[in-house]
């Protein structure tokens, strides 16, 4: 930890603050997309399983699938908006 702190303080002294700004901006959206990506995958996978088990429930399953998808997707889009706020 002490070594890490030393490296960070050295970087803070030697490197201009704006040097790593683009990397940070890129990371914001990339990191924000991981969780929703997994979540959306699970939502659609489960919906397909549900429809395969009970094809007559397709309408209800699809509706709920889109609601879940929208809620998960919003998190990724927050990262996308934050990207512009930082830039």
């Amino acid at each position: 930890m002490a070594f890490l702190a030393a490296v960070v303080s050295l970087l803070a002294q030697t490197v201009d603050k704006t040097t790593f700004a683009p990397i940070g901006k890129g990371l914001v959206y990339g990191l924000a997309a991981i969780g929703p990506g997994i979540g959306i995958g699970i939502i659609f996978g489960k919906a397909i399983e549900a429809v395969a088990r009970q094809p007559e429930a397709r309408g209800q399953v699809t509706t709920m699938m889109y609601i879940g998808f929208a809620l998960a997707e919003a998190l990724a889009l927050f990262g996308f908006v934050l990207f512009f706020i930082l830039g």
């Binding site: 919003a74 889009l77 927050f78 996308f80």
Partner: peptide, 13 residues
């Protein structure tokens, strides 16, 4: 907030 940001961000992207 999510309702508006979802639509807005999708269209911007």
């Amino acid at each position: 907030i999510t309702l508006s940001v979802r639509l807005f961000a999708n269209m911007v992207a």
